[in-house]
Design a protein around this nucleic acid. Structure first.
Lengths: 137, 137
DNA sequence: TAAAACCTGCAACAGTAGTGCAAATTTATT
DNA sequence: AATAAATTTGCACTACTGTTGCAGGTTTTA
């Protein structure tokens, strides 16, 4: 049976309880997750450190990506597209809902290009929009 | 003499050594500052807590604003425009240089509007571009 | 199935951020 | 100018976040 866990083997990772559970969390969840969310959703079944390391590993392998926020927390979300180890293509807009607090990847909305002043060379662009999401309106 | 410190009195704040020095840091500095930068630049003349509280006060009063980053640190920068207590209009693009590490407010580059999926109501938008700045090119 | 490779949990540590309260400073008042 | 009132500061303490080394356990490979 194909359990989505070939994502792990494909990336040369051992298939373990922790990784399966955390990966499933991301697959089941539309929005982005903070480290604290993950600890909460796994009933503290795993050590804090394991969660950190798992997330770091997933980022390294291009399975999830980080999202910038204004409030000093790192959010993680699945890379839906063609990300790979060492390279991320998460150039879509992220939406943070002020009502339910969820962070959602708007995979279909790409970050628009902006004209920068002379001398500035852009490499990556991230965009975060806050407001009210479609479920809270 | 007008020492820029009327910014403080205008906002109903007492004029103190710490606030003068931190405000001056922002006025003298093109880029954005992290809490750690401020401690460094003030030679530990002030208590950590004072710096935190001063920054929080400045944000509350609309003197500085926060900038989102991917690496779990909060950056602060002067509000050049028409910000006021309780409301920020920092809708300009921020640039983080991969070479010198500085974060620069591109005051003249406004965040472009994006078309969001049905049901999403935007309220604020933040954009961070990374790359190489005009001094490092 | 055994060896090798890899992953996990524990303990310890460092950095970051927030609070209450007494002392000190700044502002307002006389 | 001197004092009272209001505000701000520094200290001690607490809490949370993130990292590392290492021993023991699990998964993969042969």
């Amino acid at each position: 049976m194909n359990d989505n866990f070939d994502i792990l083997t494909k990336n040369g990772l051992s298939v373990t309880e922790g990784r399966k559970k955390i990966l499933k969390l991301f697959l089941d969840n539309e929005g982005a997750l903070a480290h604290a969310d993950i600890e909460r959703h796994t009933d503290a079944a795993f050590d804090r450190v394991t969660v950190y390391r798992t997330l770091q590993t997933f980022v390294d392998k291009g399975i999830i990506h980080q999202i910038p926020t204004t409030d000093n927390s790192i959010l993680y979300a699945l890379c839906r597209h063609k990300c790979g180890a060492g390279q991320h293509y998460d150039e879509h807009v992220h939406f943070i809902c002020n009502s339910c607090g969820k962070t959602i990847c708007l995979d279909d909305v790409t970050v628009p290009a902006v004209k920068l002043p002379k001398g500035f060379k852009p490499e990556q662009a991230a965009m975060v929009v806050t407001g009210v999401c479609d479920e809270c309106k």
